[in-house]
Amino acid sequence: MSYAYLFKYIIIGDTGVGKSCLLLQFTDKRFQPVHDLTIGVEFGARMITIDGKQIKLQIWDTAGQEAFRSITRSYYRGAAGALLVYDITRRETFNHLTTWLEDARQHSNSNMVIMLIGNKSDLDARREVKREEGEAFAREHGLVFMETSAKTAANVEEAFINTAKEIYEKIQEGVFDINNEVYLNKLFVEKIVCILIEYLLNYFIISKANGIKIGPSHSPSSPGGIAGTGGQGSSQGGGCC
């Protein structure tokens, strides 16, 4: 299936807040009340349409357990978006947000869009974290906020799609430099050589550092046309996920 952009997401947050369920609800549209503990990382994908363009979301669902934290860190670098999830019925998951945020900011690309998600909004009776608190935290740290329920599917679509919209806007604004393969911490010379080679190898289609990729429908022989990616994507027609 052809797509105009490819965004990489990661889902982070304490164990048991419902990260895997959110992913399952988004990709398969179903809810699984009993879920195995995620070991390391699991992968899921879906196609969405924004602004008439097909966008492929590749989502890595990480393990929330402390033991896997070091593994999870490896996934920050390539991600364009992150869903930071807490459980509204468990105060401690909210309290740990700062640690997660620090981790994310330290290891990720500075332009990574982070969305704060208070999950399990269906369990309002057992709520321990007020909606306003989540909003305040998000405002304080410059995040987008939303309360979702993986069980009832409330706001799940919106959470993923709004994140994509945010990234998309950043691309339109030119904040994300999508055609430049950036290797950080490297000698300048190598960068030049790399970029040259990239062009030789049609490498420009990947943007690893940002987790964004231009669709495969792109003609590799026209490096000049990188910015104008919309054409191919929209020709596919929207709505198909």
């Binding site: 070991i39 390391g40 990382v41 992968f43 890595w60 490896s74 996934y75 390539g78 690893k208």
Partner: peptide, 12 residues
């Protein structure tokens, strides 16, 4: 080592 495999895959 499936964890390493996944990270390598993640790195394109």
């Amino acid at each position: 080592n499936s964890n390493i495999q996944k990270i390598v895959a993640f790195e394109n």
